[in-house]
Design a protein around this nucleic acid. Structure first.
Lengths: 118, 118
DNA sequence: GTATAATATGAACATATGTTCAGATATTAA
DNA sequence: TTAATATCTGAACATATGTTCATATTATAC
């Protein structure tokens, strides 16, 4: 009677370690959502956008001018940030003002800055 | 006398906002390093690896068995995490035990979990 | 020395990502 | 309604990313 294989036939050196780790392993859905969240911060342009919105709300064309990229590129990136629930907007006539959705951005970027400054 | 152009000729709606944002804009080098750092967290496999190493050190083949991916893939990912200064290792004979380099990982992932659970 | 185990590496490949371009949509003013 | 402004969207493209495969290291045991 062969031992039940979970998902691979790799050799395992420390069975106990693997067992323990398997207990608290993040689910595929959790890691997918986490990865999506972190991906939002994993691009220089988006980081500059988020950093600027930390100070005050801004519209698409101001962000484009500030960052030196096209308004279309900014719009695409803002959609990604919206999907990650990091920014929201309010409309004033034809102008959309974007702002941060909550305070996680500040905390996260500050933690990261601490790390890279070491 | 034309106004000095910085890096684009886009139209700007709120000149003052753009000026203020430009004051505190992150440098290209800062955002590059930050992006690299966040990229390390922006993948389900790496997140699972980091999450497991949060508990205790593990070797390459245990991680491979745990996650159901090849040892080569794990090795490649660990190199990326090493370059991001997120993990270090110690050798015991032919076996390399990987562990987290500092406590930023825990804080960062916990912040992110807070965010996605809202 | 040779053989074996654990890990690392480089090339190749498929997929994902970020930008640009052209065109669509939405809002306001005339 | 028409025109103008601000933004959005989809397709196309080049580059980046993550995995696999084959092969190279490294350390130990014989």
């Amino acid at each position: 009677m062969p031992a039940p294989l979970d998902q691979c036939q790799c050799r395992i050196i420390h069975e106990e370690k693997v067992q323990r780790a398997r207990q608290s392993l993040l689910s595929g859905e959790e890691t997918d959502r986490l990865a999506l969240f972190f991906k939002a911060f994993a691009d220089p342009t988006r980081l500059k956008m988020l950093w600027s919105l930390l100070q005050e709300e801004m519209c698409v064309c101001d962000l484009a001018a500030l960052l030196g990229v096209s308004e279309s590129a900014v719009s695409h990136q803002l959609r990604l940030l919206r999907q990650a629930a990091l920014v929201t907007n309010r409309r004033e006539g034809p102008v959309l003002y974007y702002r941060l959705a909550d305070d996680h951005v500040r905390q996260l970027v500050e933690l990261a800055l601490e790390h890279i400054e070491e």
